[in-house]
Design a protein around this nucleic acid. Sequence first.
DNA 1: CTATCTGAGTTCAAAATTGAGACTCAGATT
DNA 2: AATCTGAGTCTCAATTTTGAACTCAGATAG
Lengths: 135, 135
Amino acid sequence: MALAAEILGDRWTLLILREAFYGVCRYDDMREDLKAPRSTLTDRLNSLVARGVLEKQPYQEAGDRVRQAYVLTEAGRGLALTFLALAQWGEAHVTGGAAPVWVVDRETGAPLQVALVDADGAPVDPARASLRLRG
Amino acid sequence: MALAAEILGDRWTLLILREAFYGVCRYDDMREDLKAPRSTLTDRLNSLVARGVLEKQPYQEAGDRVRQAYVLTEAGRGLALTFLALAQWGEAHVTGGAAPVWVVDRETGAPLQVALVDADGAPVDPARASLRLRG
DNA sequence: CTATCTGAGTTCAAAATTGAGACTCAGATT
DNA sequence: AATCTGAGTCTCAATTTTGAACTCAGATAG
């Protein structure tokens, strides 16, 4: 988990990834949403690309030159569960927060939850979980 | 999620919480494990206490004076899912990492997984999840 | 009673990182 | 030819982080 911590353990990186999950993928849109300094934003985007969490994808808008979009890679999309768990936690435990938010199925609107389950899909109390070395 | 990001979006804070989940709760033990500078460690521990994620608990060892232990609060323990999801991600996507690790039931040893489920406990693809404002 | 040890800090200067804003650059538009 | 725009780079002041040294209080040793 040490390397994972290096990736998530940074304010701007975390916020950039949240933007990415919301579908924002252009430099200037992120900069405006986050009010991040340009140099920091550039730096974090590059790190995320270097670590394979985001990738640059060329795109072209009508009558404009080609530009790069930053989109989540397969690995990056894998962080969805972590973010959802974090959102769920913020919702439940961070008092007096901003907009309360809910995890739902984007198509049916049904409420969803991040949970710990065993091999049969039965829910397990997170307090029972333990990290075990493999092998 | 903005405030949650403020809490997790810091290298040392993240590592301190991981220690706490492993059961490490003494200043000097954390300092040694993490090789964190004293002033930074003190600062982060205080923030975590101020935000109600950790709390100080006095403890006394035989023939020694009373000292403070830093233990997870109820809210802090709520972050377990987030950390497990992150560990699971690191395991799956961070290549060439250190010790590969597995989430298991601490009593039965059965493998566990962090998953997104609907109200009936049926698994749902995280890509279907969306954050919706409540109300 | 004085000296010493230990965990848990505080203080301080040097080094690294961040932030705000100005500047650059390439292609599209007027 | 002049202007606009997205996506940066550059610069430098302000903030944060580091690491090392110092402090403090109570326990223990001599």
